[in-house]
């Protein structure tokens, strides 16, 4: 599986997205994915990013990026404005993940969510053996300076999708360079879900978060 700008999640997302569609990338960093999608898939893209230096690089790269907080930014777009709304490696950093996911399914037909799998065996082992907040390749931070404030696994996300009535259109799990199909909750380092609001099921309006 090739990588895009050294990011495997980008390569997977890049493959999931159909050409000539409208894409919103939440937490788009320096706009690498948006630029790649524009060049290779003629996508009409927008991005949201909080960090000023990254926003400048993204705009300099030609991406239409808005500097702001993604959790409130997603509320400003009209209903179903995008074919895909992408949230890559950021869900675990958001304050109200459910509100963000609902917002994504309101403004987009499909939500593509990539996150590090907290169910991976290395996390479980690290926790079991050390008795301390686990630090692994995918979760390299000390508990006190980690951007991650929620920890979820492949199974956690699937359970949420089920309770919300969302339809999982596709699920791709990877470890290293390989795709994982056997025991994904144990073996996957990164999970990428493509989700829709489900047949005839309207996403609930965003209420008070939490």
């Amino acid at each position: 599986m090739p990588s895009v700008h050294g990011r495997r999640d980008f390569a997977i997302i890049g493959e999931l997205i159909e050409p000539k569609t409208r894409v919103l990338d939440l937490g788009c960093g320096e706009g690498e994915l948006l630029a790649w999608l524009k060049e290779h898939k003629q996508v009409d893209g927008r991005g949201v990013e909080m960090e000023g230096a990254r926003v400048q690089k993204a705009i300099a790269r030609g991406a239409s990026v808005y500097q702001g907080d993604l959790e409130s930014a997603v509320e400003d777009y009209p209903d179903q404005a995008f074919d895909y709304v992408v949230l890559s490696q950021t869900l675990q950093e958001t304050r109200y993940p459910l509100a963000v996911l609902r917002g994504m399914l309101r403004v987009g037909k499909r939500a593509i969510v990539a996150f590090p799998n907290f169910g991976h065996y290395s996390v479980r082992l690290a926790w079991l053996l050390s008795g301390r907040a686990p630090r692994t390749d995918r979760f390299p931070y000390d508990w006190y300076d980690s951007p991650n404030i929620h920890f979820l696994s492949v199974l956690d996300f699937e359970a949420l999708a089920e309770t919300q009535g969302w339809k999982v259109e596709r699920r791709i799990c990877v470890a290293g360079e390989r795709q994982v199909t056997w025991l994904p909750n144990l073996m996957a380092e990164i999970a990428v879900f493509e989700v829709s609001a489900g047949a005839g099921l309207k996403p609930r309006p965003i209420g008070h978060p939490g």
Binding site: D44, R46, G52, V55, Q56, I59, A63, S64, V65, Y66, Q67, G68, A73, D76, Y77, P78, A81
Partner: peptide, 21 residues
């Protein structure tokens, strides 16, 4: 500026915005 940007985003116009330090 944000007021204008919000209006543009509300109509899904193609807008980039940055608040430079």
């Amino acid at each position: 500026s944000l007021e204008i940007v919000k209006a543009l985003r509300g109509r899904n116009c193609d807008v980039a915005y940055c608040n430079l330090d």
